[in-house]
């Protein structure tokens, strides 16, 4: 199983500057664990602990084949060989 993961500029410190890496996992959670095994520190930037459960960070967007994973079960979203995953930090802010 091989899944291409597109890495945003701000997280490329974890991938040795690579814009895309391959990883594997049958779910997004498993994929992120696999990423962490090869690129230590990256998981913490994607996931936070909320009431004892791993949750995708509010201002991190992850897409599987162009679909926002928040509409596909978030960390439980299923993955198949050849899927394309994109990670993009939200572009957000404001005066408050």
């Amino acid at each position: 199983m091989s899944i291409e993961v597109r890495i945003p500029t701000i997280l490329r410190t974890y991938t040795g500057g690579e814009k895309a890496v391959t990883a594997e996992g049958a779910s997004l959670a498993a994929l992120i664990d696999d990423l962490e095994a090869n690129h230590p520190g990256i998981k913490e930037r994607l996931i936070e602990d909320k009431n004892g459960a791993d949750t995708l960070r509010r201002f991190v967007n992850v897409y599987i084949n162009d679909e926002d994973v928040r509409f596909m079960g978030s960390l439980e979203a299923e993955l198949s060989d050849g899927d394309q995953v994109v990670v993009l930090p939200a572009v957000a802010g404001g005066s408050n």
Partner: peptide, 22 residues
Amino acid sequence: MVNAAGSPTFYEFDSAELLDLY
């Protein structure tokens, strides 16, 4: 971009539009 938050104190790109843009 459209401010998906539509707010006087916050802005956020819509997630689908963000992906299209990138």
